[in-house]
Amino acid sequence: MLEGKVKWFNSEKGFGFIEVEGQDDVFVHFSAIQGEGFKTLEEGQAVSAEIVEGNRGPQAANVTKEA
């Protein structure tokens, strides 16, 4: 698991990027966000996630919002 913060997230398109210190930004799709209801993230929000290899490079999986 790694910790980072949301760089930006487009709720209409359902994707965005997470900033991780010392690494390239990581793509995040709404389907990777854990929880019930409408899955979205806010800019600057702290999150933790796993990194997996997607079709277009590294992407976030099992994204959870930090308190």
Rank of each mutant, 00 (worst) to 15 (best):
K13R: 10
E19S: 14
S31K: 05
L2Y: 10
F30L: 08
D25M: 07
S11R: 14
E66Q: 15
A67V: 13
A49K: 02
I51Q: 04
E3S: 14
K5V: 11
S11N: 10
V47S: 02
K7C: 08
A49G: 12
V52N: 05
A49F: 15
G57F: 05
A67K: 13
G54C: 10
T64L: 13
G4R: 01
Q59M: 11
V52E: 07
E42V: 14
G37D: 06
G54Y: 05
A46M: 14
G4Y: 04
I18D: 00
V63A: 03
V20E: 01
G44C: 09
S11D: 08
S11L: 08
K65I: 15
G22R: 03
F17E: 01
E42G: 08
K13C: 10
A61K: 12
E19Y: 11
I18T: 00
Q45E: 12
I33K: 00
S48I: 13
G16K: 00
V6W: 00
K5I: 13
N10A: 06
N55Q: 13
Q59P: 04
I33C: 08
Q23W: 14
T64Q: 13
G54S: 10
G16P: 00
T40Y: 12
E36R: 09
L41Y: 01
S31I: 06
I33Q: 03
D24M: 12
M1N: 09
F30G: 07
N55H: 14
K7H: 05
K5E: 03
K7F: 01
G35V: 08
V6R: 00
E21M: 11
K7G: 03
Q45N: 07
K65L: 12
V26G: 00
D24I: 12
E66S: 15
A49T: 12
A49S: 06
S48L: 14
G14W: 03
G35E: 09
K7S: 03
M1C: 13
V6S: 01
A32I: 03
G37M: 05
K13E: 04
K39N: 07
Q23F: 15
I51R: 08
N62L: 10
A49C: 15
E43S: 14
A32K: 06
D24V: 12
I18N: 01
L41A: 00
A46W: 15
Q45S: 08
A67D: 12
H29F: 09
Q59Y: 13
V26D: 00
Q23C: 12
V20P: 00
Q45Y: 06
K5D: 01
D25V: 07
F17K: 04
V28W: 02
A61Q: 10
Q45M: 11
T64Y: 12
E19N: 07
E12L: 13
G37F: 06
W8C: 09
V26E: 00
I51T: 04
H29P: 00
E21K: 12
N10F: 05
G22W: 06
Q23T: 08
V47M: 02
A46C: 15
N62I: 10
G35Y: 07
L2I: 15
Q45I: 08
F17Q: 01
M1P: 11
E21D: 12
I51C: 08
M1F: 13
W8V: 00
G35N: 07
F15A: 01
V47R: 01
G54T: 14
Q45W: 10
T40M: 08
A61D: 07
E3T: 14
E50Y: 11
G4D: 01
V6A: 00
V6P: 02
V26P: 01
W8H: 01
I33W: 01
T64R: 15
K5C: 13
S11F: 10
V63T: 02
K65F: 11
K5W: 10
E50R: 13
P58C: 09
N62D: 04
V28N: 04
E21V: 12
H29L: 04
M1S: 11
A49V: 15
A67W: 11
A46P: 11
D25K: 05
F17D: 00
L2T: 10
T40Q: 06
A67P: 13
K39M: 07
F38L: 07
E21R: 11
F27Q: 00
P58S: 08
G22L: 04
K39P: 06
L41V: 03
E66F: 13
K65N: 07
G57I: 03
S11C: 14
R56P: 06
L2H: 10
N62G: 05
K39H: 05
A32Y: 06
E43G: 12
E53L: 14
D24L: 12
G14E: 01
F30T: 08
E42P: 03
F9S: 01
R56A: 08
G14Q: 01
V63R: 01
R56H: 10
F15H: 05
G16V: 04
V28S: 01
F15C: 05
F38N: 05
E36L: 10
S48Y: 14
S48W: 15
E42H: 14
F27E: 06
A49Q: 03
L41M: 05
K39F: 06
N62W: 11
I33S: 03
L2F: 14
G44V: 04
G22P: 01
F30I: 09
G14Y: 03
G16T: 01
V52Q: 08
E66C: 14
A32W: 06
E53G: 09
T64G: 06
E53Y: 14
Q45F: 06
K65P: 11
A61I: 14
E53H: 14
K39T: 05
F30C: 10
F15P: 01
F27T: 04
R56T: 07
V63N: 01
W8Y: 07
K7P: 02
E21H: 11
E3N: 15
F30Y: 12
L2Q: 09
A67S: 13
E43T: 15
N55W: 14
V20S: 05
G35C: 13
N10G: 03
V47K: 02
E42I: 14
F30P: 07
F9K: 02
G37T: 04
P58I: 10
G4V: 03
G35F: 07
I51E: 02
G4K: 00
Q23Y: 15
Q59F: 11
V26L: 14
R56D: 06
F30V: 09
G16H: 01
G14C: 05
F38M: 06
G14R: 00
G57D: 03
V26K: 02
T40C: 13
V47T: 01
K65Y: 10
D24Y: 11
G16R: 00
E19D: 06
E3I: 15
D25Q: 05
K39G: 05
E53N: 13
L41W: 03
K39S: 05
A61R: 12
E19K: 11
W8N: 01
A61M: 12
E66A: 14
A61T: 10
V47Y: 00
G4Q: 01
V63I: 06
K13P: 01
V28I: 07
A49P: 02
K5T: 10
E50G: 08
G44K: 05
G37I: 04
D25Y: 07
D24H: 11
T40K: 07
F17R: 02
G4T: 01
F15S: 03
E42T: 13
F38H: 08
G16Q: 00
F9A: 02
M1W: 13
G4L: 05
S31F: 06
K65D: 04
F15Y: 14
